[in-house]
Design a binder for these strands. Structure first.
Lengths: 151, 151
DNA sequence: TGCGGAACCTCAAGCGCTTCAGGTCAACCC
DNA sequence: GGGTTGACCTGAAGCGCTTGAGGTTCCGCA
């Protein structure tokens, strides 16, 4: 297949290139290698610098997507393990469970953002000496803090 | 004032009570004290256990709101400092800047959640052997991963 | 061919917590 | 009065990175 040939023929990439491609920082890439989340990366013979094979890059990009969505390192390990044995049920559960978690987090973030905006408004009102706006902000903040408290 | 009297008369609270009230874990409360974010808490004479004064609780609840919104410890320190000198401009800037950051984060979270949901759908389709649904999920994931990559 | 700057390396420490181990203290039960 | 339970204590280690120090290697250009 043409697509596979292209991957096989592609040259190995430097850590900087993989970092830009995946969105993971260079220290993070070294860290993932150190903790064994990804296999030891090939090195350039003379310099000892890392050279990432196309296959390694592919794995890293998948992990980067997971990390960006707040998946834990433990779950990333589980992902790689179940990928190997192609365990569809486990993988579905893993993604569904993380999708649900992320959805809840968005709800919480929305309330938090509203809180911060009202606090900004409050101090803006105080700055301008606008006591009416100040009072309005204060009455709106109350129910939000109690909502945040119940998490 | 009645409200102030009520606060002054209120009994000191245990670490468990403050934890439940603020949403901060007990280790976090001890940690904040250790790093000097909050002042050393009063202790019970005989047991040496922490007893939080109403004033301390009030500060902690404010910090808990900030933390829940993703404000850094550094900014929490700035908040307390500027509160002391009542620096409205600095406080407005601090909250506005964090509100903007939080709003951006929500946008990113939305894309991430979509990604995870599609991955769950993908493996669900594979589980059922539904190759049509599988292909649909794959084509939808492509643009999302490239969107995530640009962060 | 030598030079300056960018890219890379490792190792160690820091951050903001959480978790764990090992022990004290107060209150209730039989 | 001994035993259990639960809340609390301290100190140390772990997690998932980031930051920084100090040193090597690569690369384009004069």
């Amino acid at each position: 297949m043409a697509a596979i040939d292209r991957v096989d023929d592609a040259p190995p990439l430097t850590i900087q290139e993989v970092s830009r491609l995946s969105g993971l920082s260079e220290p993070t890439l070294r860290y993932y290698e150190r903790i064994g989340l990804i296999d030891a990366v090939d090195r350039d013979g003379s310099s000892g610098h890392r050279r990432y094979s196309p296959a390694a890059v592919e794995t890293i990009e998948a992990l980067a997507c997971l990390r960006a969505t707040g998946v834990s390192v433990r779950d990333m390990r589980a992902y790689l393990r179940h990928l190997d044995i192609s365990d569809a049920t486990r993988l579905r559960e893993l993604f569904q469970c993380n999708a649900d978690r992320a959805a809840e987090e968005i709800e919480r973030m929305r309330v938090r953002t509203r809180y911060l905006q009202l606090k900004a408004d409050l101090w803006s009102a105080r700055e301008r000496g606008d006591t009416a706006a100040e009072r309005r902000a204060i009455t709106e903040i109350g129910p939000i803090t109690s909502e945040m408290r119940s998490w």
